[in-house]
Design a protein around this nucleic acid. Structure first.
Length: 686
DNA sequence: ATAGGGTTAG
């Protein structure tokens, strides 16, 4: 905890030094920085949590220690050395009393401002710099270090004004950037006006920052006006405008700016990529990648942010081939700082997990020299998606007990969803309880969603519903939708109908709720009601989203939709499907028609055989048949489906995995299913 | 100096 004694010198914590030896990092404090008010942070003694490691290079008798330490601190500030090394330098400087030199204490402060967390920059500002040394440059560095906490950055700027320290152009840029992140229209305008008030030149970077601030605050007309006044807008001006147009006016408008840009750099391309990811269009993002490489940008120009965005697109699209290609490129370029390496490695862990290579993800995670909370969360969520609840629980306790890391709400989403997916009801309830009592977090709607899912799936629907009604936050669509899915699983028609009414009000055009309830009616033999729902869907003009399955063979992604005959090898695929169905029937398989296709769905599906046929040509079955004819026997098949896998396909793939001796890994909308020897990793619980 | 950012429940 903060604020332990006021002793001087270096405290050596055994646990922390062990962690440092193992992973090169010092255990973090249990107090979340965002919860500590500014006033308190400034009184925290500086040496707390610091470790003297003994591996600091010492200046020899020929070198002057001042430039020696200054250059080391600079290398930390630039991110060439890990933050732990910076803290060790601090300890060494304390020990040798060199910190009494103003030039070194200033250099140390700038190291923390550039490379440390904002709280460290703030503490360094208060403890290392006497009031006389708090120059405009120091204040600016402090404000800039709070980029991730814009509200505090703005408060610090006001404090600087109160202290009568004159801001310069760079200070105003930092203030503009904080106002932009804050998103307050008035803040953007006042930052803009300060240039005039203080008589500072409104240079091109300043104008770019102002355009950005207006765009981020939703004042696109002001942003466009500032842009149009420019004689020769730079790539940054264009990119700022592009990002604003995308965010505020959508992909329709952003594309236009993008096409009008006279030149583009890797940042402009990445803005487009990031927008596609946000819009859930990962394939468009990857197509942008190939255009970018074809047109003007070399892969060598891609930095950590571009790589992370592209890897995220691979995760979303399930594209292992491109993901691996990016990985290969990343290993060949050695120009990343320690913190940037950590980010890309985390994105790689996420990519491998979401592309079905959970073992690779795990190996990568284990050899990471340093891991932050995001890395742990990525690994936990990945394992959870694969239904590996036992691993999730082991990893969680390792994270909390050995690493002394404070989990956050995303960690708990991972842990609780793992319990829910594996039916670990008591464990889940325990974690949900500890979330508040042990870890001091407030349960959010996401956590309630996990708990409702956990109870509902386990058939404890009354408790699940009670939880929904008594939760302090308003239940959202996810919560109610999950409860509806549980009703469908356990045939609770009455509750299902009530939930459906609420859900349709929240989202009148959603198809899944209609389909879920209609299928519930159908499987309980109430075809009249099922048909009525389908009719209602038709009336509202909403259709079930078509199921699409992707399979990767030899680095090529092949796509199938239900009944698809457009694939070049469609004939062979359908011939294989006939053979598969024949062999499955011999093993006792009966298509589960009743639950799947309500009678009135399509009038032409009049007889049973046709309805059966519609079920047998589901996209995932076609993709698997293609996999069977185009890969060597015994090799695993990896399928990616945009919707949830249906009951019949699930049963079929189990049989295929046994009869054809193939491992089949399916990523559906919710999770992974790994089929082996007639069983699925989800234990039929999904 | 200004632009782009990895982890999130059905």
């Amino acid at each position: 905890m903060y604020g332990g004694g006021g002793a001087t010198g270096v405290t050596v914590e055994r646990k922390a030094s062990l962690s440092l030896l193992l992973h090169g990092s010092v255990s973090r404090s249990r107090v979340r920085e965002s919860e500590v008010p500014l006033e308190i942070l400034s009184f925290v003694p500086f040496h707390v949590g610091m470790v003297y490691h003994g591996s600091i290079p010492a200046p020899n008798s020929y070198s002057d220690p001042i430039p020696f330490y200054r250059s080391l601190l600079r290398s930390c500030a630039l991110g060439h050395s890990p933050p732990s090394f910076g803290r060790q330098l601090h300890a060494a400087l304390l020990k040798s009393a060199l910190l009494l030199l103003p030039s070194l204490s200033a250099a140390l402060f700038h190291m923390y401002a550039a490379a440390g967390p904002p709280s460290a920059a703030l503490r360094a500002f208060h403890h290392l710099l006497p009031t006389s040394a708090r120059s405009p440059v120091a204040w600016t560095a402090l404000i800039s270090s709070h980029a991730a906490l814009p509200a505090r950055a703005v408060r610090l700027f006001r404090a600087m004004r109160r202290a009568a320290i004159p801001p310069d152009v760079v200070t105003l840029l930092a203030f503009l950037s904080a106002s932009a992140r804050l998103g307050h229209p008035a803040a953007a305008a006042s930052a803009h006006l300060l240039f005039l008030k203080l008589g500072l030149p409104f240079s091109v970077p300043a104008r770019n920052a102002a355009i950005d601030a207006y765009a981020k605050c939703g004042r696109m007309p002001d942003a466009r006006r500032l842009f149009d006044e420019m004689h020769c807008p730079t790539v940054v001006s264009w990119t700022v405008l592009l990002s604003g147009a995308l965010r505020r006016e959508g992909l329709a408008s952003g594309r236009e700016v993008f096409d009008r840009m006279p030149q583009k750099n890797e940042v402009s391309w990445t803005v487009m990529v990031a927008c596609c990811i946000e819009a859930g269009l990962p394939r468009e993002a990857l197509s942008l990648l190939s255009q970018m490489l074809f047109l003007d940008i070399s892969v060598r120009n891609l930095n950590h942010i571009s790589l992370c965005s592209l890897l995220s697109a691979c995760s979303q699209a399930g594209d292992l081939t491109v993901g691996r290609w990016i990985h290969a490129h990343f290993t060949k370029t050695g120009l990343f700082s320690d913190g940037h390496l950590l980010m890309v490695r985390t994105a790689l862990v996420d990519m491998y997990a979401k592309c079905g290579r959970i073992d690779t993800a795990r190996r990568l995670f284990e050899i990471m020299p340093r891991r932050n909370l995001v890395a742990w969360n990525a690994m936990l969520s990945g394992l959870s998606m694969h239904g590996m609840a036992a691993e999730v629980l082991k990893l969680f306790s390792r994270m909390v007990a050995e690493e002394a890391l404070q989990p956050d709400d995303i960690t708990f989403v991972g842990v609780l969803s793992a319990c829910s997916r594996s039916g670990l009801v008591e464990q889940g309830e325990k974690f949900f309880h500890e979330l508040g009592t042990v870890y001091g977090l407030k349960p959010k709607v996401e956590h309630y969603a996990c708990m409702v899912d956990l109870l509902g799936r386990a058939g404890r629907l009354e408790e699940a519903e009670a939880l929904v009604r008594e939760m302090p936050v308003l239940p959202n669509e996810v919560v109610l939708g999950s409860l509806l899915a549980s009703c469908s699983l356990h045939g609770k028609l009455d509750l299902g109908r009530r939930l459906m009414e609420e859900l349709v009000q929240m989202d009148p055009h959603n198809t899944e709720y209609h389909v879920l309830l209609s299928n519930m009616y159908a499987s309980s033999g109430r075809h009249f009601e099922a048909d009525g729902l389908r009719e209602a869907m038709r009336r509202k003009g909403i259709r079930k989203a078509p199921g699409i399955s992707f399979i990767e063979v030899n680095g090529q992604v092949h796509q199938f939709s239900a009944g698809d005959k457009s694939h070049p090898q469609a004939r062979e695929v359908h011939a294989m499907l006939d053979e598969v169905v024949q062999r499955l029937r011999m093993a006792g398989y009966v298509p589960d028609v009743a639950s799947q296709i309500p009678r009135a769905m399509d009038n032409y599906l009049e007889n049973w055989e046709e309805r059966e046929q519609a079920l047998l040509v589901h996209s995932e079955k076609l993709a698997i048949c293609f996999g069977l004819i185009s890969t060597r026997p015994g090799l695993p098949l990896r399928i990616f489906k945009n919707l949830r896998i249906c009951t019949d396909c699930h049963a079929v793939i189990k049989l295929i995995s046994d009869i054809f001796g193939r491992e089949v890994i399916v990523r559906d909308r919710n999770r992974f299913h790994c089929f082996r020897k007639g069983a699925c990793s989800c234990s039929d619980y999904w």
